[in-house]
Design a protein around this nucleic acid. Structure first.
Lengths: 302, 302
DNA sequence: AAGTGACCATTGATTTATCCAATTGATTGT
DNA sequence: ACAATCAATTGGATAAATCAATGGTCACTT
């Protein structure tokens, strides 16, 4: 059985006339006759009653035509589906962002993206790097914003990345801290400093640990935070110091908070932020445009 | 696009694995791969995301699969429809009967038919010969019970007939009539008799007219009846005599009615009753069996 | 780091299905 | 009787589907 065969039968029902039905289907009359006959043989029942001057459908034929019309309607819907998906910047797009970036980056880029690509329906997912990568590989998420490079431990073949920007780290300290008023510092300045970090799983923890190791500072293992905001509260309370990515700063002028964010002299420690997606995903073009918007919105910041 | 292609795509969705999907469809893996690819090219969108370790569907692919499943369900319904129609003695059957036969024949055959072929759903139509033939030719009715032979005036090609029985005519007269007590009569006995007949359109009128012409009797043109029952009332009132087909007799013993039905000596005038149907109708077998039942139920009567 | 197994894509040959132009056969209307 | 109409048939050309064998990529193992 063939979709075309069903179209032929439906045309016969519409016109009650083989030649007209054939014309309507843009085939020759013998073709249509043969295909209808073939369909009858396939089903094992007579569908059309052909007397020399009249063409009519048998009861089975009428039933078949009803279903055939329904099936053809579905097929037509399938044919038209791609039209709605022609624009790569339309439809649902699941975007995953790490927790140390999401609350600070997303407010800056969501509105510009919606403005630039109104047909795009963003679904936001906030999770740590590994769960995000798992979702990405399973196809439950389309694209991620995370810190590069990707962890190398797992099977991550077929992933592609687009670098977005470098995000410098700041030293976050209480205003009473010995470095609080410095215009800038170097890694040497925090040698021996006890620093609080995020708990396991956050990529920011690993990156900060790398910096600490290079600077010769130590982790304050008693004060591991579950989020950057918790970490900020700890600093605000004067308990500890920490490394804070630039986008996560609040109140850069120090209004109303005893926290001071001290930059490093170049080359500042930093992390690389980038887009990650499956190379097999057909919307690569879409991700490139997304990267453009994000870079544009963060250019002045980093 | 092909029904088979949709099956392939649905199988890919079911198994997320080309080889398994191909096995399930009883085709080779390259075949399935090629057909899915062809479908994607036809629709102009990517439906399946193939990375070496994972197969998943794109958003469009998922939408397509939903419709494809619906379409395939309809197609499956089409494939299974003939099973319900395999028995020619099942399903709806529209039966047309002429008014001078229907009220007297149908009560005798309906129950036996329903008993013998319970799956048969009879739709009864009572109309005069010409309207019935029109319905038959248009396919709105499957089979007729009429008096043969068919009128030759029209395009009635492709019709076939099955003779059922010969129905003799009786002379119906008031008990006060000069012939009321005769065991039998001949055509000579009604020479010059004034007879009432049915109005135009009833085939019985033409047949009776033929008899009258042969017998030398005359029509009482002032008393044309619209139905046999009206005719019977006229006779009951003693106004006139008429010819009545055997099945239309009431109270053969004359109980409670002043009407007497007098038979003719053989060869009695009679009409031939038969089945008529389109030769192109696939249920010829069904009509033969129907004829058997009808003959069986009327054998003792005629 | 090379080997192995799993998996989808490609290739080339073969079978199958679809289609058309021309013709036939049957019926209708003039 | 003759032309017109309509579906079925025939025969040959074209396109499509299919398979077996092979290739290429990735992940996991030794």
């Amino acid at each position: 059985m063939n979709i075309r065969d069903l179209e032929y039968l439906v045309a016969v029902d519409d016109f009650r006339h083989f030649r007209k039905a054939a014309d309507h289907c843009f085939v020759s009359q013998p073709t249509l006759s043969a295909q209808v006959k073939k369909l009858e043989e396939y089903l094992g029942v007579q569908l059309v009653e052909r007397s020399s001057r009249k063409v009519m459908l048998t009861p089975v034929g009428r039933e078949v035509v009803i279903r055939a019309r329904a099936a053809l309607a579905e097929v037509q819907a399938i044919r038209e589906l791609p039209k709605h998906y022609l624009d790569p910047m339309s439809g649902a797009l699941s975007l995953g962002v790490i927790p140390t970036l999401a609350p600070y980056l997303l407010p800056r880029i969501i509105q510009p993206i919606k403005k630039r690509y109104p047909a795009l329906q963003l679904r936001l997912v906030e999770a740590m790097t590994l769960p995000l990568l798992e979702r990405l590989m399973e196809g439950r998420t389309d694209v991620l914003i995370l810190a590069l490079p990707l962890p190398s431990e797992q099977q991550l073949s077929g992933l592609e990345t687009i670098p977005l920007f470098h995000e410098p780290f700041y030293l976050a300290v209480h205003e009473s801290h010995r470095l609080a008023s410095r215009k800038w510092i170097t890694l040497d300045d925090i040698s021996g400093e006890k620093m609080s970090l995020l708990e396991d799983g956050h990529c920011l923890r690993e990156q900060a640990l790398d910096v600490c190791q290079a600077a010769g500072s130590l982790e304050n293992a008693d004060l591991r935070a579950t989020s950057l905001e918790t970490l900020r509260y700890m600093v605000e309370a004067g308990e500890t110091a920490t490394l804070m990515p630039k986008l996560a700063r609040h109140d850069e002028n120090g209004n109303g908070t005893p926290i001071r964010y001290v930059p490093f002299r170049k080359p500042s420690p930093e992390r690389q932020i980038g887009l990650v997606f499956r190379g097999s995903n057909a919307r690569t073009e879409c991700f490139g445009k997304l990267a453009q918007v994000i870079r544009q919105q963060t250019r002045k910041l980093v």
